[in-house]
Design a protein around this nucleic acid. Sequence first.
DNA 1: CTCTGTTTAATGATGG
DNA 2: CCATCATTAAACAGAG
Length: 316
Amino acid sequence: MPRPGRNTYSDQKPPYSYISLTAMAIQSCPEKMLPLSEIYKFIMDRFPYYRENTQRWQNSLRHNLSFNDCFIKIPRRPDQPGKGSFWALHPSCGDMFENGSFLRRRKRFKVLMADPLAMAAGAKPSEAAHYLQQQHAKLRLSALAATGTHLPPVAGYNLGAASPASTFKHPFAIENIIAREYKVPGGLAFSAMQSMSAGYPLHGQLGSAWPHVYGTGAADTTAPISMASDYGAYGVPIKSLCHGGQTLPAIPVPIKATPASVAGLSALPHHLPAFLSNSPQSLSPTSPHAAASQSSPGAPSDALTSPAALQSVAVH
DNA sequence: CTCTGTTTAATGATGG
DNA sequence: CCATCATTAAACAGAG
């Protein structure tokens, strides 16, 4: 038993792949997309392990962003100054870690050539960007037309049918991941917990069940747990929504929970405790991006309009 | 120059 | 054991 000296569990490597971590970061923000630097920040804020050797893991993470089709690059708009593009999750990548392990996916997510984006990318990378932008514009316009408003950063987040981004939360959402093991005092947290308990220290106490996560509600800059925000209603681990459906709405918020598909999960809590009702803006208090989101309502709304009409599947 | 982003290659780790 | 996925290193180009 390793003596918990100065190097406590918090300094251990979290049981998540870079893909998981990146997906968490992206899902954690209301816009569902982040610039690279914000992804870094998210990870470093929550996982002390990644406050060291930044050169190494950030290079790896960048490699993952480029290499894996589950991440898509969304160009900045003129009103969104800054460096680099935004990164988002591919609408159809859904539950890549449905096996419960956040270290290794069942299959690598690959877009097919039927995917217009893939085709554009295959032909000319530059055209893919154009395609994305156009899809963006179309979606944003349609959303605007439907709502007749300017899509405020947070309100737009909860748009209904008009907005691609509804209330569904990716299985990647850190809220979901945390919820699986953190919520459920009774011990309903199965999948993630089991997969984690293998090779990672998990004490019985829920309060310390996340040793690798930093500052549980401490007076620090981040509040990893409480950031669950309004994900609660859908915070249940909805599995097999993706691989069962096959035909997914190719929209940022890809998967819709049909009554049938959730039926088997009815035993799980359908609402979450009060601490979830935080403002999404509190997600990253240290983030200038979040602050910018508030000041410029136009920008974040773009996040709602990730490229649509993308067809892709996990490669077999 | 630094930060992003892409790409190739080698190596480790894991699942079937 | 092999196929596949993940990690790491490194070279390189381009943008800001």
